[in-house]
């Protein structure tokens, strides 16, 4: 009849146990490497193939390229913007990127701002978003011909 008294034991037991709260601004959750956080962009790797723009389900990526100064057949990136108001961090852009130029970092908390317009991030901000993540820190730009392959 008094099984409800057992419940008091449970709560009292937790009373003395170690607390599991993470004191957020002071200590942060360490996200696993694969965590799909906020993007990072490597301008030198980009070959302006437009794959990320095409796959993006929310159409938040816009980019423009210009001619490569030495090799007129190639293109280099000129502007690259992600509008984080609409970005759903689905990771499809990094998945299709043939050269790993757009990658996702494990950072999750540098997007808060007081105005909407600040969510519109340009190439400079994205290149400097320097956190660890599921990507190579630096390395040679992979050869062409891997277009459409999984990274």
């Amino acid at each position: 009849m008094f099984r409800l008294l057992k419940g008091f034991g449970v709560t009292l037991n937790y009373f003395r146990k170690k607390k599991i709260t993470i004191q957020y601004p002071d200590e942060k959750v360490v996200m696993p490497e694969r965590f799909r956080g906020i993007h990072r962009f490597f301008p030198d790797k980009c070959i302006v193939c437009n794959m990320c723009v095409n796959i993006c389900p929310t159409d938040v990526i816009t980019l423009t390229g210009k001619k490569h100064p030495e090799n007129p057949k190639k293109k280099i990136i000129d502007t690259y913007n992600i509008d984080f108001q609409g970005c759903i961090l689905c990771d499809l852009c990094t998945e299709v990127c043939p050269t790993d130029a757009i990658v996702m970092t494990a950072r999750y908390d540098n997007l808060s701002s007081y105005t909407r317009s600040e969510h519109f991030k340009d190439i400079e901000w994205l290149s400097n978003n320097h956190v660890y993540g599921n990507y190579e820190e630096s390395g040679p730009v992979p050869e062409m011909g891997e277009r459409g392959e999984r990274k």
């Binding site: 996200m31 696993p32 694969r34 965590f35 799909r36 759903i88 961090l89 689905c90 990771d91 499809l92 996702m104 599921n134």
Partner: peptide
């Protein structure tokens, strides 16, 4: 799930 998929709720 976060470790394997990179997200905590919207796994994709």
């Amino acid at each position: 799930l976060n470790e394997i998929s990179g997200a905590r709720m919207t796994f994709n």
